[in-house]
Design a protein around this nucleic acid. Sequence first.
DNA 1: TCGTAAACGGAACAATCGTTCTGTTATTAT
DNA 2: ATAATAACAGAACGATTGTTCCGTTTACGA
Lengths: 202, 202
Amino acid sequence: MWRRKNTLPHFFAMPRVKLFDEKEVLTKAMNLFWKQGYSATSIQDLVNYLGINRASLYDTFGDKEKLFKKSFELYRKQSIDKICQFFESHPNVKEGFSELFKEAILDKDRKGCFAVNNTTELIPNDESCLKILSGNKLDFENLFYEYLKKGQMAGQLKECKDLQALASFLFIIYNGILVVSKIQTNKKELTNSIDLALSLLA
Amino acid sequence: MWRRKNTLPHFFAMPRVKLFDEKEVLTKAMNLFWKQGYSATSIQDLVNYLGINRASLYDTFGDKEKLFKKSFELYRKQSIDKICQFFESHPNVKEGFSELFKEAILDKDRKGCFAVNNTTELIPNDESCLKILSGNKLDFENLFYEYLKKGQMAGQLKECKDLQALASFLFIIYNGILVVSKIQTNKKELTNSIDLALSLLA
DNA sequence: TCGTAAACGGAACAATCGTTCTGTTATTAT
DNA sequence: ATAATAACAGAACGATTGTTCCGTTTACGA
């Protein structure tokens, strides 16, 4: 069997390159889905906001659902990277969580958290998203757990706590903050609640 | 100017009565919006699920947004009534919150909380919903506060706490539980977190 | 320079969106 | 019985949905 490679003289040819940066466009898509949610964001919205052609959108990202999944994938990577760096640059556990939560309440444009928004919008109507969000929960709780453990070994936690339970608790608090911050932008009240929650650590 | 009333003999006439119970249908609409969210629920979905005609839907409830608002209004009334009764039938504060939260984690069909779902879906894209949800937050925090106060006066809280901060904290916890319950139905882990949070009360 | 193939712009697709309209049916005071 | 009128069933509306297709443009290896 002969291969096509041999039969055609100019088989390999390079087409024109993309006129847009794929990751840059994906970041834009992420931000629009984040703000509007999956269902409320139309392809036309995306075409307008991303500034690329419909055909380019479909050629590059597949369909709407695929683009959404890729957007959320990017968000997950970014937020996990951010948390890791955040913990590394905050050696004290209690201070670290305090700063993390207090940063979360500065939600000027009320977008909340893309993961939390997806949880409430897409569960229980999208099975595949449940898997992703379950994984996301585990990732966060594990990060929280390791951070707590490091703090415990450094003697930052007074008593011997159930770190697993503490990690779950902190994840719940984090989710709660990310919901309530969309309603309430009064920093003072939320700060008090955070201090109250973190009094369980020391 | 003569009035039409005088020119026609039988001006007042009663039409046929509704073949469906308005509140019953509204409850159904509430449940569908609750499960699917506002954007993901089409009029056709509603017509199928409610079992009434399109025209009847529009005649009775106005348009989609009005039906949604009425659905959520019904939900708010029901949940506030439920909380009031719940607190009245649970004289001990800590036990009351414990039971309330532990009831929330039994979310078999993963619908979550209609109010939380609406918060993440509709803010910041619907200004009128922000007002409603702000009011809802205040209502809940006030209910929590009064309940805490009653418990404090009954000597159920050891120290003299900042009850306002405690109420806000419990509202955040409640929201967090109502999000995470959609992902995690493992009761044990969530129960531990609830116990941890409520250790701040006694 | 030339041919290839992907990116591009934009029209076009069927399906569905929320909403309105048109008759018909059914009820009740007269 | 009759007239009036709202509820009913269902077709129809234009607009928008997500997606595909077509023809052109453009970059790059040969």
